[in-house]
Write a protein that binds this DNA or RNA. Sequence first.
DNA 1: GCTATTAAATGGAACGTTCCAATAAATCAA
DNA 2: TTGATTTATTGGAACGTTCCATTTAATAGC
Lengths: 347, 347
Amino acid sequence: MASRAKATILDIAREAGVSKSTVSLVLQGSGLIRPETAVKVRKAIEDVGYVYNRGAANLRKAHSNVIGMVINDLTNPFFAEMAVGMERVFQSAGIVPFIANTAENPVRQEEVLKSLMEQGVAGLIVSPARGTTSGAFRRLETAGLPVVFAMRRLPESRIPVIAPDNHRGAWLATAHLIGKGHRRLAFFGGSSDLVVYHERLGGFREACEALGIAKRDTIVVEGETSRKGGIACLDTALAAAEPPTAALCFNDAVAFGVMLALRKRGLEPGADFAVVGFDDVIEAQHYMPALTSVAVDSAGLGERAAHVMLKMIQSRTTRAEDHIGAVNLVVRDSCGPNRRAETGDAA
Amino acid sequence: MASRAKATILDIAREAGVSKSTVSLVLQGSGLIRPETAVKVRKAIEDVGYVYNRGAANLRKAHSNVIGMVINDLTNPFFAEMAVGMERVFQSAGIVPFIANTAENPVRQEEVLKSLMEQGVAGLIVSPARGTTSGAFRRLETAGLPVVFAMRRLPESRIPVIAPDNHRGAWLATAHLIGKGHRRLAFFGGSSDLVVYHERLGGFREACEALGIAKRDTIVVEGETSRKGGIACLDTALAAAEPPTAALCFNDAVAFGVMLALRKRGLEPGADFAVVGFDDVIEAQHYMPALTSVAVDSAGLGERAAHVMLKMIQSRTTRAEDHIGAVNLVVRDSCGPNRRAETGDAA
DNA sequence: GCTATTAAATGGAACGTTCCAATAAATCAA
DNA sequence: TTGATTTATTGGAACGTTCCATTTAATAGC
């Protein structure tokens, strides 16, 4: 009947006519108490509207069952899917993940990290915000808290990372474009303060070199990793003297922007200009034309990251191996007719 | 430096040569301590790698600065945007929101709610999972915790709700369709265990009646609120003896599915069959054809909900007024040529 | 009947904070 | 000087749990 002050274990004890220790034992499902007593206690718990105070408990136990997931952009379905993947495995491990969004803001990230620590989380999975300084994680490392990075890494840091094989993904996509006969290629979107950017751009560059595209026949346009960014990139690139005929985009979002901008200019994505995305979000297959993209299995990587975290917590270590997830190119319609359907005239 | 055991306020006190009370005062920025002392203490805090234990503090203070946001589907951009809107206002109020995803699973929701309560949150904003029983919130109500529902409401519950004007939105959309000359209309997607469903369907029904469409010329197909669901709905509807020529969809996701299914049948959305969505997610304007949809301003509603929560916490009440957000129909290309560009031949 | 053994329940200290009441030191009024 | 006032600091109790060491009750062995 909801008395004003919050009910505690002592209220239950009084109600049930036992000691607080007995109640505590019941709460943790100990087999030491007589079944009838347990029933009586559980009834009292129900009656007084008790809610367990985990903060008080952690004061003694020191080991909480919550872990924090710090995500740089929840509105990007790519990261949302990753988060959901993580949740799945934590749930079945009886761990409650709390998600916090940083909106790519390092200051916000700092706050969020602090809060999560104060709350006494058992571990942290972080997809760092753009522009994060590695100093931000020193404190967590010295605190001995298990931390793993997902999707993104920091330049010089010993924190384990779960991420896709960005280099190879970019390589595959670039090779695909070249295989379609394109000779002037662009790399659109992203910015150089992201390690991922260098990985993907590196794959692009290496594929170009290996397959005989001169560096002067490539153009790299940095930009926001959003539709808006993609639109801007295309505009910049097409203004060049010898504009590219195909682009590898940092991101699916950028790719969508590029396709939009193409249409606006009366150009048909696929036929007049080839575009490849990266991440393969669900929308990719539903766009017109369907986007060819590098699939990275974000949910799978999320699950992987969660498993690594669980293992770290279990073995009370702060070290773990990096995991580089396999990628594969999903060929759809945004680079022109599909190879299988072709007679093979693409040089 | 990282000594093994976690540093406490007493370690700092020892390090700085003051009492624990002094450290506590410094921690909460009290003006009572001499500046030089404060500096000394702050240095010690840094040196020992101290992390504040909010659990212990809450044991005395009882008022925490974290609130929980329980979201039914984070992978739906509509809800993700709402969450981000909430975050914005909480951030500037110095409150840390923890997000938890229920994936439309009432059992999961129960767990998440329990965890959040145990963690001692100051309030809860919930977008209830499908099939939530109102009993799930009784406990929270009796615990005297401020709770507000966002976007969705429960059948018989006195918890304040922040939601769009679903009835009016559906009415507007339906009227638009009828104004375009359609005489056989469909309502696609959603299921009757959602209150929102009844609101939107009600608007649809009322508009039909008011504007002279007989009930037998309408068809209502329940279905998943996803692309997949939309595809299924269209298939069902077109199999009818006198199939509809236009549809109001429960959801943008459903609408995307319907457009996809139309294309697969060689029908052109807009020209051969009109479709209107609901929610107006960002993708709506980027699809081909761009989707006409009822804009509900999810981020704005999120902000509104957060403000209501803030006010409730401040005034330590558990009551608040409902807020019904204005909606408006954003006319794009999925219902055929735009009125303004027309000569007016649509009957 | 008496002691051993097992089973069930309990009191008390500890966890890391906050905050009240108390002290100590410095300043002021006379 | 003495007492009053202000400023800065401090000890200790309390918050709601857990868990160890103990007590109490029940059962068994002889």
